[in-house]
Amino acid sequence: MPAALPPLRDVITRHGLSASKALGQNFLFDEQLLDRIAAIPGSLDGQQVLEIGPGPGGLTRALLRAGAQVTAIEMDRRCLPALAELADVFPGQLRVIEGDATRVDHGLTGPFHVVANLPYNVGTALLVGWLGGQDWPPQWASLTLMFQLEVAQRIVAESGSDAYGRLAILSQWRCQARIAMKVHRSAFTPPPKVMSAVIHLSPAAMPHGVSARVLERVTEAAFGQRRKMLRQSLKGVPGALAALESLGIDPQRRAETLRVDEFVAIARELSKAT
């Protein structure tokens, strides 16, 4: 760490900062842990990185130490002076945008990595946004994101498990997804009530002939009534029952028993008619 950079706890005390429950904030102080998170995507030296919700800049420091060119989006203006101090210590490496990450344009063009200790209240929505859309591969090169452990398990879940659902399919149908590390609640200030985990997603090939919009519609219908048989949950999706028949998928199965590739096959059949 540059000599001019004081300990993060001192920065927080000096600026009178505290984690906002309304903003889903939980601060991390462990420099070694933060460096490990920043290392998950691989070398970031000279790479563009988008960080959401940097707060007082704990993870931001680690990204800057790794040589990244960081664009950080922060809506809590209390944290902006602390981030400005970081920008002074790492000249030319940090650009801070004040605003809501679900609304503001970060202005980056690919490839860029997303690395973030996401605020819990917007994390899933942001992930679905990054995973959505027909354009593939995306502009982002990888996603390294902190979630509640329960959400992380839903992202990497396999068919047949209780955690398996829409989030697993949207994450896995054209990405490689894994839990990179678990983080104990005691690592945070204040400690959240649940354990956390860092997930890492990297884009894979786009399955041929499949509309992302169609897949999203199919999974929404199937898991909207996950305890019902497919013949019931998918009857409102035009052509879905015929697709099951043509693919040899038993309509008496329930959504959680279908593998990701089976959902992709259904979406491919339906995409032919769109």
Score class of each variant (00 low, 15 high):
residue 274 T to A: 15
residue 19 A to D: 07
residue 121 N to V: 10
residue 65 R to L: 14
residue 220 E to L: 14
residue 114 V to G: 04
residue 138 P to D: 13
residue 219 T to L: 10
residue 28 L to T: 03
residue 1 M to W: 11
residue 205 A to H: 12
residue 176 Q to I: 00
residue 107 G to F: 13
residue 162 D to M: 01
residue 178 R to E: 15
residue 173 W to Y: 14
residue 54 P to H: 06
residue 155 I to K: 01
residue 170 L to G: 05
residue 181 M to C: 10
residue 118 L to M: 14
residue 180 A to C: 03
residue 148 Q to L: 06
residue 59 L to A: 02
residue 63 L to Q: 09
residue 150 E to H: 05
residue 123 G to M: 04
residue 108 L to E: 11
residue 76 D to P: 02
residue 257 T to S: 15
residue 91 P to N: 10
residue 119 P to S: 10
residue 187 A to D: 04
residue 160 G to H: 14
residue 224 G to P: 03
residue 251 P to D: 02
residue 90 F to Q: 02
residue 186 S to V: 00
residue 51 E to K: 05
residue 236 G to T: 12
residue 115 V to R: 01
residue 116 A to P: 06
residue 36 R to W: 05
residue 122 V to M: 12
residue 216 E to V: 07
residue 175 C to Q: 13
residue 253 R to P: 05
residue 154 R to E: 06
residue 225 Q to W: 00
residue 1 M to L: 08
residue 38 A to F: 13
residue 15 H to K: 00
residue 236 G to V: 12
residue 124 T to V: 11
residue 206 M to N: 12
residue 225 Q to I: 00
residue 89 V to N: 03
residue 224 G to W: 00
residue 116 A to R: 03
residue 217 R to E: 14
residue 119 P to A: 05
residue 255 A to C: 13
residue 51 E to Y: 01
residue 164 Y to L: 06
residue 38 A to N: 07
residue 197 A to N: 07
residue 102 T to L: 15
residue 239 G to K: 06
residue 167 L to D: 10
residue 54 P to S: 12
residue 98 E to G: 12
residue 94 L to F: 10
residue 272 K to F: 02
residue 76 D to K: 01
residue 162 D to S: 13
residue 126 L to C: 06
residue 256 E to A: 08
residue 51 E to D: 10
residue 20 S to I: 03
residue 102 T to E: 12
residue 24 G to I: 10
residue 114 V to M: 12
residue 218 V to N: 01
residue 9 R to I: 00
residue 31 E to W: 06
residue 69 Q to F: 11
residue 82 A to V: 13
residue 142 S to V: 08
residue 265 A to T: 01
residue 273 A to F: 13
residue 46 G to C: 05
residue 156 V to K: 05
residue 68 A to I: 08
residue 250 D to C: 11
residue 13 T to Q: 14
residue 230 L to N: 02
residue 147 F to W: 01
residue 91 P to H: 11
residue 259 R to W: 02
residue 21 K to N: 09
residue 152 A to M: 06
residue 235 K to R: 15
residue 174 R to D: 04
residue 149 L to M: 05
residue 56 P to V: 03
residue 5 L to N: 04
residue 239 G to Y: 00
residue 51 E to S: 08
residue 129 G to A: 09
residue 30 D to R: 13
residue 69 Q to H: 15
residue 84 A to Y: 01
residue 88 D to I: 02
